[in-house]
Write a protein that binds this DNA or RNA. Sequence first.
RNA 1: GGCCCGUUCGUCUAUCGGUUAGGACGCCAGGUUUUCAACCUGGAAAGACGAGUUCGAUUCUCGUACGGGCUGCCA
Length: 469
Amino acid sequence: MTPMSKPVVTRFAPSPTGFLHIGGARTALFNWLYARGRGGKFLLRIEDTDRERSTPEATAAILQGMEWLGLDHDGDVISQFDGAARHAEVANQLLAEGKAYKCFATQEEIAEFREQAKADGKSTLYRSPWRDVDSADHPDAPYVVRIKAPQSGITTIKDQVQGDVTIRNDQLDDMILLRSDGTPVYMLAVVVDDHDMGVTHVIRGDDHLNNAARQMTIYEAMGWDVPVWAHIPLIHGPNGKKLSKRHGALGAQEYQSMGYPAAGMRNYLARLGWSHGDDEFFTDAQALDWFDFDGIGKSPARFDTKKLENLSGQHIAVSEDAALQHEIQAYLASAGQPALNDVQSANLEKAMYCLKERAKKFPDLLEKAEFALASRPIQPDQKAAKALSSVFIRILSELTPQLQNVSWTRDDLERLLNSLAEAHDTKFGKLAGPLRAALAGRAVTPSVFDMMLILGREETMARLADTAG
RNA sequence: GGCCCGUUCGUCUAUCGGUUAGGACGCCAGGUUUUCAACCUGGAAAGACGAGUUCGAUUCUCGUACGGGCUGCCA
């Protein structure tokens, strides 16, 4: 790429037949990173030419997933189906120029041929007998339009990830451009749309690698510039198999419902199949700056929840409190849980500093935030109740009046608790459990001093009094 | 079946002919500790296999095995 080359335009082109799964999300992310990192455009096109399987619900789910991940696109969402007339126009132009032809073979004939070829152990590549038939000899019957693919020579896909991939042209079939009902097929539509949209770099799953060779015949027939190809390896499930719904592939949004922050998800997804030296944890700005084709690996990667959690926790720790608040509310909504009310939000905000560094996901954070979210009287859960034996309750009730006059600082509170422990010939560590239980009703919380500081003198004393009965 | 692609610790990866094959997550042991998380120290853990090229291969070539993809009037 020279500085003079035209601006980068990438696109993400999912078909709306289901949710945005993790592999698609990563493809979208790579396209987004490549374009945005270079001041280019990132477009979104919905490949809805298959009317049978495309649904508006799926489109909505994809859009929502993109939004959650923060992958904003330029311009309107483009519907591939809307361009059907233009696609047909191109096919007809090719037909007029003799670069495509009408094929009258029926689907039954072709199916029969394939079955036979398979039985004979021969290539199932279909060669239409109509390729060179004069139009005067055409029957009055339904037909499909096929492109005249080259039958000799080679086609080389100069791929930025896979390197040069060469395919013998005699392996290429005369693919269908227009169905017998006149509607365009995907293979034609992608090429026309990518050209018309000015897409300069096609970054997509390597399941399209072979298709690229076939699509190149259309580019050549039309005399169009071929885009830069980058076919990235697919993501596999934990079992090493292709990601599928059956193998637990989840929609991007389910990760939101599980409480992962979008920034952590982006970091993890970017790191899956792409690397920049030994960098593991990075910001969007860094990813944007670093992302390039030479860092993309050639082999498929497996999804690893543990690593996602680790990265997720690191991102939560460095996030701004206000941003975390917003994301947590969105998480609750996506998980179908009640939103935090104003009081809870305010308390959460006060407690955020000591919560965000010890949570991997939002549910962990909220669990530890329970002391700030709950209101009196605190109901201890089973584990907390166990810590509240009568002997400790007695010590706590002894503590309560002493809290009245102590200065409400961490140092003084620590001093007070330590001397109280000493007076009972024990260590502060022994007191922490019951105190925690009384203040939070939970066994897992931030430091008891942080809780006391956040709760304040009055509330702390009230909760201890409640516990002492 | 045909064609295409891939193969480094359990997982994600670094290495662009010469390294005790590095890092991260996870795991194990120990430490710290106020629960959880975090943190500190240490540890186990990898070049699929077989040839070839080379003074020297994880790295280049070929073959085998295994995995994946495509082979639709799906995208």
